[in-house]
Design a protein around this nucleic acid. Structure first.
Lengths: 75, 75
DNA sequence: GTGTGACTTCTAGTCCGTT
DNA sequence: GAACGGACTAGAAGTCACA
């Protein structure tokens, strides 16, 4: 949760999430609301500062209309 | 983390993990060691009792030699 | 070799705000 | 709109003894 390799994984996940969110033309705020999560939390995840859990990965994926596995594409 | 639909997701994830572990012909114990996790923790995830985080998903996937996204295939 | 309950520590996740 | 901070609560992480 703080080793360099873990940081890399979280950053990569966050980058993928951000890319998908932008592709869907949503603001962090809008995505957060769709996924029923806090806006500051979504921001933290995109910045690679949070170790998100499966249930929330699925929530975000559903809100984005993509398969959850896609968010792990580049990790 | 306790609604029926969430339970379903966790159980499905656990089932996929178990299937991949068996395909790799590993015991929970062996997989746990490869992933540097506790044996009882892995068991709990397979039974759908734990809402695992990304980092641990990646650890398990690496230990299994599969892309992390595969574990979310059926959720 | 696996399931289960119980437990502690640490962080996920929320809510308030400011830059 | 997004980054960032503080303070807080729910829950994940991690381990153990026993069946």
């Amino acid at each position: 949760m703080s080793t360099p390799s873990e940081t890399k994984i979280l950053k990569q996940f966050g980058a993928t999430l951000r890319a998908e969110r932008l592709k869907a033309e949503l603001s962090q705020e809008a995505l957060a609301e769709l996924a029923d999560l806090d806006r500051t939390y979504v921001g933290g995840v995109e910045r690679g500062e949070r170790n998100i859990s499966v249930l929330n990965i699925v929530r975000l994926a559903k809100a984005l209309g993509i398969p959850p596995g896609n968010l792990l594409k580049n990790v």
